[in-house]
Design a binder for these strands. Structure first.
Length: 969
RNA sequence: GCUCGAGUGGUGGAAUUGGUAGACACGUUGGACUUAAAAUCCAAUGGACAUUAGUCCGUAUGGGUUCAAGUCCCAUCUCGAGUACCA
């Protein structure tokens, strides 16, 4: 009985909806097919030309993907699929940036090992990515938290440690070459990017040095080095905080006080590459705003360094203050000097009388975080040291102040203050009643400083009088050089990058400390050094990083045998021939694992090398990289740095890793609001707000239909506190307010791709995300619109199916002229659009094409076959299904893209718009063969023209053949 | 403050070198089919006046160049992103 009824329903549906577009079944079928056949596996050997399309790999967060995340992946997938149709061997990999803070914080709260949560999250991500039909080569997947991967992150760290930057060769070189120079010449002739404070030594000195001393010296040259650097330290949390983790001087989480503290940290000498990082920007096709922000970040400024003698008892004393200035031309305007409160000399030069005041000031500024100092620009503060410096040219004494407007971390941490030419110096001078000499011709400085370089004419400056800024700077530098008190200098804002984090869930450093407390690299054959197990993921009671909790975290090695042991075991082992010691307790920062992953994809399972030379020489570099702009000065700068280092070492053939980069825009959410009356229990519909005092309250977007109507009952169920509220309706409906906001759980505007795939299919979602607008632009999500691309796919499906015969049906007959025209118009447009990354317009082109072919009743194979190919990069599942129905047995994915034939588009007539004074009034069809004169004659003879002119004689007739006619007069 | 980007119907957006503004969709309204709903199909849809033709206004605002400006130039306003005592 039941069965009979069921069959009845089925046959009714088959009758009513022949060969329905069953997207769920089709998509499932093809996703399984691609996985089983490894359709998108890329080979490292191929006669085809290579093309590398890369997405920024995701951090697998617990929340999974929302509809905003796949935008870039869809675009890159379309491009990758298109390139396969164009005959390229395409590398399109995906992986996970799986070290990171959220998993660690979750571990601190729950005790759950981060590796466990990470694995779970990756599973969710993989399922969500698969259901969208991406053509990733999953055989190349990488995970940064996987020891087989971070083995190579550690390996690169060791390479950096074993390198120094030779300025003469302008590249990184092996540290051994430096040692051999030291053995012959000492460091007198060495031009290296290294620590500023380096003592000079001869070859004889070098050979006399003890081993720890040698290592200490070398550490100042290495590309990754241990150094004291100032950090934001939170004693309560026992960790270093980044600037953006501090709000109003206290930690963002917990509200604990934060102090600035010097700590020994690993740093990366990225400053060595500052100029090359700037130069490289010229040869890569990256978005201009992104290049601008990298340029800005590197912050090159050209000027001079000037040395001032500190006076002691009116004579030049032993101390020198070096400053950097971009305005050496204003040297005669110096009326005081300002040091950062942290400057090394402050303590030594401060006079007895001023000691108390200076100490109090230093203490006060130390309490403020750097962020606070920067935020509070208006308050002027400082203290006089009591000391004076000698002006290098006038030999006049100039007072030395300290002030927190001078940053310890930029330049030399000291400035020569020229109050007439710099507003900050001016404000400081005014505040402390320091004289403001004017050294500019014809400029009033009674109210503010004069900082215009272009217009400056120097005066009151001895031999610089009457000169402009450029000329005066040149001469000032020359003069200072002859005195040995200055030289031309280029300064960069870019600072070396701190590479240590007091975290658990990151790459361990392959480093142990020997008995001399000098850092030693593990031999490469012992890599990877795996993360130890710990009981808890918090810092230790003594304030050490979480790895301090590990029971076994000492390195013990005899000859070729090495292992990680407990401290006790290490101490009880025989010292004879023993290497090892305590292992490094810090871990690497988030960007370590992402700085070379694009190269590792080329040869991801290689256990002997980071990648084979065959692989890198074939794939070379990334042809197209798509990802968010938030990585502009982080990942994208560090990756370029490591790539240049790898290039110097001869490991990669290109010194820029990505030729072209596109930043996809963010998809924002469209939040929904109900309006609750402040005084009563009433909730008003959007149209009824005018006279009521209401507050907007977020409603979950899933409770609102396409017409902004709220399902009131569902809402009451969702928020029971509104069970008894009175919803005041308009026209029987409750209409919500809408506002565009960032997609976020707390705003109840998150849309999940799973539900959309279920209801409309992945192909509909892919098309819709592209259809929303230009890839690089940020745009609001509105689920309502997806019915548009979904019904397009249904129309497309129907083109290949006959309603009458209930089946797939295409005709072998020759296509009509119109159909050919429609097809080739579409081929041209879609091809141009993909090449220009204008994916939104190709979706509308598909719609126009299908609308036209439908009204032409076109069922010709010669049209429908190429059409399936055109659609394939965008909606791959339906394209595969249609392809099989067209009689093929293999995947559509590498079939040649249809070829555009211009001859089908040639027209004989054109419908000319006829304008009068620039305004289009009517249209007139004319042959394209007509000459200008013939066109004019035809138009002027037309009765509508006469009607428009009403007897006037036109002054001028503009005719652009094939385009437009404009009659003036 | 500085740097960069953007302002077009009710909504997302289109307009490739200055040449028919609003393609393609969503939404809305009306209609067909249906017991009903869904789905599908048809028509209308920038504003105002007129509704037969048509006229005027209209791409943030105000100017300018041009036969012709969303597009080029100048000024202003608004929004977004990045960045900031950088000497």
């Amino acid at each position: 009985m039941l069965e009979e009824n069921f069959l009845g329903v089925i046959s009714y549906f088959l009758y009513k909806y022949p060969m329905n577009y069953d997207f769920n079944a089709i998509e499932e079928k093809w996703q399984a097919y691609w996985a089983k056949n490894q359709t998108f596996k890329a080979e490292n050997n191929s006669d085809k030309e290579k093309f590398y399309v890369l997405d920024m790999f995701p951090y697998p967060s617990g929340a999974g993907l929302h509809v905003g995340h796949p935008l870039g992946y869809i675009a890159s997938d379309i491009y990758a699929r298109y390139k396969r149709h164009k005959g390229f061997n395409v590398l399109h990999p995906q992986g996970y940036d799986s070290f990171g803070l959220p998993a660690e914080q979750y571990a601190i709260q729950t005790g759950q090992h981060p590796a466990v949560t990470t694995a779970e999250n990756i599973k969710t991500y993989r399922r969500q990515l698969d259901q969208l039909g991406f053509s990733f080569d999953w055989s190349r997947e990488v995970r940064t938290s996987d020891p087989s991967y971070y083995k190579w992150t550690q390996w690169i760290f060791i390479q950096l440690f074993n390198s120094w930057y030779n300025k003469q060769a302008d590249k990184a070189e092996d540290i051994e070459t430096l040692i051999s120079v030291f053995e012959v010449d000492g460091n007198l002739k060495v031009e290296a990017v290294c620590d500023d404070a380096i003592e000079e030594f001869t070859a004889a000195d070098w050979t006399s040095y003890s081993d720890p001393k040698k290592q200490e010296v070398l550490l100042k040259y290495r590309l990754t080095y241990l150094a004291e650097s100032e950090v934001n330290w939170c004693p309560a949390l026992g960790t270093v905080l980044a600037n953006d983790e501090i709000v109003n001087g206290v930690s963002e989480r917990g509200g604990h006080p934060v102090i600035r503290k010097k700590m020994t940290q690993w740093s990366m000498r990225i400053s060595a590459y500052a100029q090359r990082l700037l130069d490289g920007l010229k040869k890569i096709d990256w978005p201009q705003p992104l290049k601008d922000s990298q340029t800005n970040w590197i912050g090159k400024s050209v000027g001079a360094s000037v040395s001032f003698h500190v006076l002691s008892e009116n004579k030049t004393g032993p101390h020198m203050i070096d400053v950097f200035t971009t305005r050496p031309d204003t040297i005669f305007g110096v009326s005081f000097m300002t040091l950062a409160p942290e400057h090394d000399l402050v303590e030594q030069i401060t006079t007895k009388k001023q000691q108390a005041e200076v100490a109090a000031y230093i203490e006060a500024t130390a309490k403020r975080s750097e962020r606070d100092r920067m935020a509070d620009v208006k308050t002027i503060s400082g203290a006089f040291t009591g000391a004076y410096a000698e002006h290098p040219l006038t030999k006049e004494p100039i007072p030395i102040w300290i002030g927190d407007y001078v940053l310890a971390g930029y330049g030399t941490g000291a400035v020569m203050s020229v109050p007439c030419g710099d507003q900050r110096d001016y404000d400081f001078a005014k505040h402390f009643n320091i004289p403001i000499p004017n050294i500019f011709e014809g400029v009033d400085i009674s109210e503010e400083a004069f900082a215009d370089k272009e217009k400056a004419v120097i005066a009151n400056s001895d031999f610089l009088d009457g000169l402009g800024q450029k000329e005066a700077s040149k001469i000032a530098i020359q003069t200072l050089e002859t005195l040995g008190q200055g030289e031309g200098k280029i300064n960069y804002r870019l600072r070396d990058a701190v590479f240590s984090r007091q975290r658990y869930w990151g790459e361990p450093f392959p480093v142990y400390y020997n008995a001399d407390a000098m850092p030693q690299m593990l031999d490469e054959k012992f890599l990877p050094l795996e993360l130890p197990e710990v009981d808890k993921y918090l810092p230790t009671e003594t304030g050490e990083p979480p790895l301090g909790n590990a029971k076994e975290w000492h390195w013990l090695q005899y000859g070729d045998e090495g292992k990680v042991v407990s401290e006790d075991e290490f101490n009880n082992s025989s010292p004879k021939g023993r290497l090892g010691g305590a292992l490094e307790l810090n871990t690497m920062p988030g960007w370590a694992g992402s700085s070379q992953y694009f190269n590792r994809y080329m040869d991801p399972t290689n256990e002997n090398e980071i990648f084979s030379q065959d692989a890198i020489n074939y794939w070379q570099d990334v042809d197209l990289y798509i990802g968010g702009s938030e990585h502009a000065t982080g990942h994208l700068l560090y990756s370029r740095f490591w790539q240049k280092f790898m290039f110097d070492k001869g490991l990669v053939p290109k010194d820029e890793f990505a030729k072209k980069l596109i930043n996809q825009g963010m998809i924002t959410g469209t939040s929904a609001f109900i309006y609750k009356d402040i005084d009563s229990n009433k909730v008003y519909s959007k149209g009824l707000l005018s006279n009521n005092n209401v507050i907007p309250i977020h409603a979950d977007v899933s409770l609102v239909n396409f017409s902004d109507e709220l399902d009131v009952e569902a809402f009451k169920k969702w928020q029971p506190e509104y069970k008894n509220a009175e919803f005041v309706l308009e026209d029987g409906k409750y209409i919500v307010g809408r506002e565009v906001e960032k997609m976020s759980k707390s705003k109840y505007n998150v849309v999940n791709p799973d539900a959309i795939c279920e209801e409309y299919g992945a192909d509909s979602l892919r098309l819709y995300e592209m259809f929303l607008g230009p890839l690089e632009q940020s745009k609001p999500w509105n689920t309502a619109g997806i019915t548009g691309t979904h019904s397009f796919l249904k129309k497309l499906w129907r083109l290949y199916h006959s309603a009458a015969e209930s089946s797939f049906s295409v005709s072998e007959e020759a296509p009509s002229k119109d159909a050919l025209k429609t097809l080739h118009k579409t081929i041209k447009k879609v091809e141009d659009d993909i090449e220009n990354f204008s994916f939104n317009t190709s979706v509308s082109t598909f719609m126009i094409c299908v609308n036209e072919l439908s009204s032409q009743k076109c069922i010709s194979r010669a049209i429908l076959e190429p059409l399936a190919l055109l659609v394939s990069p965008y909606a791959p599942h339906i394209a595969e299904e249609l392809w099989i129905k067209l009689g093929y047995t293999e995947s559509i994915s590498t079939v040649d893209f249809p070829k555009f034939e211009a001859s089908y588009l040639v027209e004989s007539n054109k419908e000319y718009p006829i304008s009068f004074n620039g305004k289009m009034r009517f249209k007139l069809e004319m042959s394209l063969d007509l000459s200008k004169d013939e066109i004019e004659a035809t138009v002027m003879a037309h009765e509508k023209t006469k009607e428009q002119l009403q007897g006037r004689t036109p002054k001028k007739v503009i005719i652009v053949p094939g385009k437009i006619v404009n009659i003036v007069g």
